[in-house]
């Protein structure tokens, strides 16, 4: 924000630069004027609440909640899937040690989310979507970067053959190259999962001279894209024995 003295001399006489130019949006003064909650906010909340209730009510009339046959612990359905919001984690399970996929990664993600405001402590930029003009391109780049990486890794794990009929990088390192399992299923996947965001941070720092907030935007986009990429693959592209299939080839809910 603060300009160097030399710049100031050069700018003398020229039209005064707008200090808000670097921000993504310049909220007009009028928008900060305080208005009464009744009726300005309450009317919007009432309409929003009613619309949501109407939408859910319609859905409840049109689509029944699933109810399959009585639980039977001797008949394992294939595939057996967790609820949709855990399918990202279930997808991770296919690629690494279960401790890593089921506990350590989600634990680190939750702690990482909680830590965001203790790392990015700069108050300037609060209340502005993406904060700076660089925020949106950084976010879009990070989303695409993450999705491409993860789809590529998922495809590699499906099509890289390993011994004993297995497939994937971990089994390949373990069964073909004979690496111990703690390296192939824990160290290697951890290294990959750390490398992807680390390279992302490096790239946005180089390309956009990203500050701390912009690096946070890149990392949140990495988390967001990971969650949705893995969840969508787990939901729509995993069929029998959790092999990759196209959505229209998925086995129906009832076999």
């Amino acid at each position: 924000m603060s300009s160097l003295p030399s710049e100031r001399i050069e700018e003398e006489g020229a039209p005064k630069p707008n200090p808000r130019e670097r921000f993504f949006e310049d909220v007009p003064e009028d928008e900060l004027r305080r208005v009464f909650v009744w009726p300005n906010l309450l009317s919007i909340e009432l309409i929003g609440g009613l619309l949501l209730l109407l939408l859910l009510g319609l859905l409840a009339v049109l689509v029944n909640a699933p109810l399959e046959t009585l639980a039977n612990d001797e008949k394992t359905p294939d595939p057996s899937k967790a609820p949709w919001y855990f399918l990202g984690l279930q997808e991770l399970l296919l690629h690494m040690h279960p401790s890593l996929a089921g506990v350590i990664v989600p634990g680190v993600v939750i702690l990482g989310l909680m830590a965001i405001p203790y790392i990015d402590r700069e108050r300037v930029g609060t209340g502005i979507y993406f904060t700076t003009k660089k925020g949106l391109p950084i976010a879009l780049f990070s989303l695409a970067y993450t999705a491409v990486w993860e789809v590529a890794l998922i495809l590699m794990d499906q099509y890289l053959p390993a011994a004993e009929g297995g497939h994937g990088l971990g089994p390949y390192l373990h069964t073909v190259l004979g690496w111990p399992e703690w390296i192939s299923a824990i160290v290697v996947p951890s290294a990959i999962m750390l490398f992807i965001p680390a390279l992302l941070v490096l790239l946005v720092r180089r390309r956009w001279q990203a500050d701390r907030r912009e690096v946070m935007i890149a990392l949140y986009a990495f988390f967001f894209a990971s969650f949705w990429t893995l969840t969508l693959v787990g939901t729509f592209f995993r069929g029998e024995s959790m092999n990759l299939v196209l959505p229209w080839n998925l086995p129906g809910f009832t076999q």
Partner: peptide, 21 residues
């Protein structure tokens, strides 16, 4: 609901929690 969907989803989920070091 104690149907097949419920039983096996929870089996998958608790197996994940069971892999805590």
């Amino acid at each position: 609901p104690w149907d097949q969907l419920a039983l096996w989803a929870i089996t998958v989920g608790t197996n994940m929690a069971g892999s805590t070091p």
